[in-house]
Design a protein around this nucleic acid. Structure first.
Lengths: 188, 188
DNA sequence: GAATCGATGTCAGTTGCTGACATCAACCGT
DNA sequence: ACGGTTGATGTCAGCAACTGACATCGATTC
């Protein structure tokens, strides 16, 4: 048996989500989160660069998976075809997490600072996707725009999925949003 | 003559942009900005909700102008036609401000917290535009997607304009980005 | 079994930000 | 002309986010 309880990060993230849900993000101090997890405030800040980051540990994995998937699509696919394929694959990661995503999303949308953090994670993801497209030979501004368009589809589709009952899958919502974007931009 | 020097906000914004440029955002304290403007830290926080906000006073006006312009396009225009027209009009606001925009953008891109703030301003703008489109009878998710697509075009076009020499106008870059988005999303 | 390591704890300090209250020129009504 | 009100600012005390320096002590390594 180790000197400390295992899975410190997991305990911190669970405690944070619970406390933010109970009394709100601003009304919760880092010391309170740490205390509920059986740790100290200083340890909290060793695991997370700031108080908000405790809700975004999954972002790195999502970005990696997204980039890998996009990079693995056939070179022959047009930029938005590749994005569509990547979106399809990524949606599978969220198949069993509707309830968790719902709780987390409720906390985030209730606070402006957390929305800011969410947006910069999406922007970072868009930048990584644009770089991947460029590596596939797509020129700018096409690469950046395809990445931003993909993020717009992901954002809107995700919001509608998380705001729904969970009966329709995320992949479903993403396909619908992409089709809608195509219809809208189809003008002369 | 008043009891105080006039244009406190203007002095604070100028001092902030200068100091952030000289020594960086994090290395500048709110008290230092206030001091250079001949005011106190407390007064700084009366004018701006937080330290970052001093760089974003123009966002409200931009959003208002954007929304007004979009609302004033003929009801017959399709969503992206209306967005394109609004982008065109908004570009005129930036005709003589390339140098200022360049300095400000350099400061913002150099700091993650400032990039976060910029992103949430754009998100707020997108939400306002989506609401305006809905008021024109556009359904969701089309309204949200058109707004997000418009913001993507604005973002990419603005970045390319601000990173250029200023010879090509912002309107120019926006038209190019929009055309590129249309080309990309035109797939089956 | 000694040396090292790594996750955690302790403590003191800086900065962002806020509430409560004071000041005093300008303005307003009589 | 004069008393009251207003509004932008100043002063001060305090909390919470975050950081650097150093200590602790099981576990691991040689």
């Amino acid at each position: 048996m180790g000197r400390w309880q295992p899975n410190a990060r997991g305990r911190l993230e669970q405690a944070a989500l619970d406390l933010f849900g109970e009394r709100g993000f601003e009304q919760t101090t880092a010391a309170q989160i740490a205390e509920r997890a059986g740790l100290t405030e200083r340890t909290f800040f060793r695991h997370y660069g700031d108080k908000r980051e405790v809700l975004f540990s999954g972002a790195r994995e999502l970005e990696e998976a997204f980039v890998t998937t996009l990079a693995d699509t056939p070179e022959t696919a047009a930029p938005m075809e590749a994005m569509a394929s990547a979106l399809e694959t990524i949606a599978a990661f969220f198949l069993d997490s509707h309830e968790f995503a719902r709780r987390r999303h409720a906390v985030i949308t209730a606070n402006a600072e957390l929305r800011e953090r969410e947006l910069i994670k999406l922007a970072s993801l868009a930048a990584a996707l644009a770089a991947t497209l460029r590596r596939r030979g797509v020129k700018d501004p096409a690469a950046s725009l395809a990445a931003e368009a993909g993020m717009a589809v992901f954002k809107i589709g995700f919001e509608r999925w998380v705001g729904g009952t969970g009966e329709r899958t995320l992949a479903d919502h993403l396909r619908e949003s992409l089709a809608e974007l195509r219809a809208i931009t189809a003008g002369a």
